[in-house]
Amino acid sequence: MQIVITLEEKIGLDSKISNIFGRCNFFMFINPDTKKFTIEENPAKDTPGGAGIQAAQFIADNSPAAVITGHLGPKAHTVLFSAGIPVYQFQGKSLEETLNDYNHRNLKNLFEADVKDHTGLK
């Protein structure tokens, strides 16, 4: 089962994880066990408004088992929550370490939005 990780850059398993959800540059769709992945550009990256919703819709359409990101705003949270996709918070570590933490259930579950609207624009 795949999970989604928000990325700042696109250099495979060495990519830096993005703290921003709706306006991150890329999404990595990865199987946390086999580490097989694909990277897709975030279609909401440069949208004038509603980036969180559009990004969450894109992810929800792919029905991953979980999302790992830094921070999540209220509208993106509503969409992912309604889609039943849990969101885990990245703790500043590398992608491989974060995957390891995910596999050992050491990541914090974001049960609610932890930042306000438009935080990713700042």
Binding site: G49, G50, I53, T78, V79, S82, A83
Partner: peptide, 18 residues
């Protein structure tokens, strides 16, 4: 144009403020 609607689990979600 304003991404005011999402559909998840076959159900529409409307964001009035957008």
């Amino acid at each position: 144009e304003y991404h005011a609607i999402a559909i998840v689990g076959k159900k529409p979600i409307f964001f009035k403020e957008l």
